[in-house]
């Protein structure tokens, strides 16, 4: 009888040891963010997360890649947004993950500047180079992009377009930091941040016929980003009139409609 008991104990221990064997896939931890979409190709899964539902303009995204259900910890991840509407096919500006090592939660941090809204036509391509197996695969994750009017595409020269992106914020009465991003593209697929533009920003209330004082024109902070300050004197519908000039494109105008609460 004692032999049978010891045999049972040994079997249980063996069972536990097998369950924790490094050769078994560990269930990936739950991500405390909003899952935007995911897709799998040849055993590689790309999961795209965000803090909030994605919309036009600047969207910080978080990508987790898994191979056969196991989160990769050493992979080169490249994000390639793509919009194909048949008659139009283009990408948009991206800030790629900086490192091949994900953060402590297993996420690769990146950002995408979606240039227009669409519920069906955007895909976020995630190119994965698995350093462990030296395998490269691209997984296309469909995403839905809602409208918010934060992006203005302005023709520069005949062959260039400037993409002005207003960083969304919870606009409030008083002085607000206002951030714009400026990218330049010639073909719609390659985008270059513009850091040498001169920006002038004028907040107005068209329904009231006035603006405000104390505003600070945006200046470059690098990476295509510009930061200024706008004084919203009351709640309601405001308009930001942005005028930009570069050496190649003397005057570029963009207007943004925002609501101050």
């Amino acid at each position: 009888m004692n032999i049978l008991r010891w045999l049972l104990v040994v079997l249980v221990l063996l069972s536990v040891v097998r369950c924790t064997s490094p050769t078994d896939p560990t269930p990936p931890p739950t991500i405390d963010k909003l899952l935007i979409g995911s897709a799998t190709d040849v055993g590689y899964t790309a999961e795209v997360y965000a803090n909030v539902a994605i919309a036009e303009g600047y969207n910080p995204l978080f990508v987790r890649v898994l191979h056969n259900g196991v989160a990769l910890s050493d992979a080169h991840v490249t994000v390639i947004p793509d919009m194909d509407m048949g008659t139009m096919h283009h990408s948009c500006p991206v800030v790629q993950p900086k490192d091949s090592i994900p953060d402590s939660t297993g996420l690769y941090n990146c950002a995408v500047f979606f240039t227009m809204p669409s519920a069906t036509d955007w895909k976020v391509g995630v190119a994965i180079h698995d350093h462990r197996t030296d395998t490269t695969v691209t997984v296309h994750v469909p995403v839905s992009v809602s409208a918010n009017g934060n992006v203005r595409i302005v023709q520069g020269t005949a062959s260039t377009k400037f993409i002005f992106t207003l960083l969304s914020d919870s606009w409030k009465v008083g002085m607000n930091d206002v951030k714009f991003n400026v990218y330049l593209t010639t073909d719609g697929f390659d985008h270059t941040p513009v850091d040498d533009a001169s920006l002038k920003m004028v907040p107005t209330m068209p329904s009231m016929g006035h603006g405000s004082m104390g505003n600070v024109h945006p200046t470059s902070t690098g990476g295509g980003w510009y930061t200024g300050r706008a004084n919203f004197t009351m709640t309601g519908d405001w308009q930001l009139d942005l005028t930009a000039s570069t050496i190649d494109a003397p005057t570029l105008n963009a207007k943004y409609q925002i609501v101050v609460h």
Binding site: K172, V173, G174, M175, S212, M213, G214, N215, R229, N231, F232, T233
Partner: peptide, 10 residues
């Protein structure tokens, strides 16, 4: 505070 911010901007 919001009013301070507005007036401070001016």
């Amino acid at each position: 505070e919001q009013f301070r911010s507005v007036l401070g901007g001016y």
